[in-house]
Design a protein around this nucleic acid. Structure first.
Lengths: 271, 271
DNA sequence: CAGGCGCTTCCGTCCAGTGGAAGTTCTTGG
DNA sequence: CCAAGAACTTCCACTGGACGGAAGCGCCTG
């Protein structure tokens, strides 16, 4: 504890904030470098690019990347580019929610796809986003923004709105406290209007969205409950927008959601 | 060890091999603790269990696990148990092979499932194993050992044998150099017999397996090629063993494999 | 209520990680 | 064809963060 003289020893001089991240967080920063952009296809990076994104010196990056590669978390391609490695995939699919929910839900999603021939989604609530666990699509030429692993907003997607409708009040509170992005003219962003929709969804047991995220497409989404009756996920189909409501499609989505819920151990509450 | 005087000051010294693993490899050892058992459902571990499996002191484990949790690679449950975290899943599904192959193949796998109503598998060659990338199953009660992310032997599964049939000769050489496990009486384990099968598969473009891994089930598998003509994956259906060969099923598997290959940019080589 | 087990926190020691710099390989363009 | 530059790899002396034994805490269980 130097007293008196204002610490001369500060050799490194000011401005050099020395980066007090732990080894672990540096390693993580490297992986995060691959995740960054939302819809991007980047997925492969050079060493220098990784160093930049992670904010690490090149030599440090070099060493740490080598550690990842030797474990299998990253893989190095002939051209010198790096990408996420199969080991991550292997561990990733072991994740309880992914493994259990997906395994149980998949057959019902397949049925839903077969009867409707529309894009089928399965998503859970994660933080402030709808996280897409599964997506079935057939040979459609139509591209959607969604893909497995994607995160989309809660207020502009069918699954998102369903998840929000059954979320704890404080989550809703917090979500609506921030300003919601308007993607298209029909996106509902006004907090009170959203609340009204949520109430309606709880009442109807289904969410109807139309042109709120992607022009020309609409969706129908329903909640999936586990044995405790809590809503843990949502299924949806995404269709081309039409003027008429198709009651059969609604029924199909409902059935799929009920099927999965039942498989999860949910027994319709008495009443 | 104790020699003479019960080593007083000799606090550490000899015998203590100090564990020269890097921080990174310790972090990885922690994740690997969750992967360990093949068909196990363990998936959640206590801190102590992690420490044991990873071979690390408790306090070190405690600190490193906390790092994983704060990043999202592990998650801590109310009961104090840990499991793999969603972050791993998110990064895992971004892995190029998983993302691209799966996305492209899925529609064809769905078609195959619809026409045959049998278990459908998609696998790639990884090291000495067939790694299962996708599995569609419907509501079958019949359980299979396979699941997404599973690794099964090359010589006793349909997809495995197909992958081996089109693998570089040195891979085949090396694989057959070790003794192959016999799961059932009909499992072919004799190297020369396997080679003969591989040749036959290359000739026929399809593999037929019968009761070589699981009693009562058979499979039909076909190769998937990329634009360079190289075999990069295999599709299969697993059926209950019957006496007769079903040419329609064979055709369906072939079509699915061809569909995926075409979608990957493969154009049937002239001749 | 004592004993045991598992988790968390603390802290002095010391060595593994750090990153600047030099060396090497690959690429570009004059 | 060679020079200049960019990207990658290796080296190594310094030092601050990781290490882990030990003590403290909280929760069961008999």
């Amino acid at each position: 504890m130097m007293s008196g003289k204002p610490a001369q020893k500060v050799t490194n001089v000011d401005a050099v904030a020395v980066d007090d991240r732990s080894v672990a967080s540096r390693l993580f920063a490297i992986l995060d470098a691959f995740a960054a952009p939302a819809g991007a296809t980047s997925l492969t990076l050079t060493l220098t690019a990784i160093a930049q994104r992670a904010g690490l010196p090149l030599s440090t990056t070099h060493r740490l990347v080598a550690e990842w590669v030797s474990w299998g978390g990253l893989s190095k391609h002939e051209n010198g580019q790096y990408s996420l490695g199969m080991k991550l995939w292997e561990l990733g699919v072991q994740t309880p929610t992914a493994r259990n929910l997906r395994t149980i839900a998949l057959p019902y999603l397949e049925d839903l796809y077969e009867t409707t021939r529309e894009h089928v989604h399965l998503a859970i609530l994660d933080g402030r986003d709808a996280l897409y666990l599964e997506k079935l699509s057939g040979h459609h030429v139509v591209r959607l923004i969604s893909r497995v692993g994607a995160r989309l907003p809660l207020h502009s997607t069918g699954v998102g709105l369903v998840l929000l409708a059954y979320a704890p009040t404080d989550v809703v509170q917090e979500y609506l406290a921030t300003s919601l992005q308007r993607f298209l003219p029909r996106t509902v962003t006004e907090p009170e209007a959203v609340r009204k929709r949520l109430a309606e969804i709880r009442l109807m047991g289904i969410a109807r969205m139309s042109e709120e995220m992607t022009a020309g497409s609409s969706s129908l989404a329903a909640p999936i409950r586990d044995r405790t009756g809590q809503v843990v996920a949502a299924v949806s189909i995404v269709t081309r927008t039409t003027d008429t409501v198709d009651p059969e499609q609604e029924q199909a989505v409902r059935l799929a959601a009920q099927g999965v819920s039942r498989a999860l151990g949910y027994r319709r509450a008495q009443q």
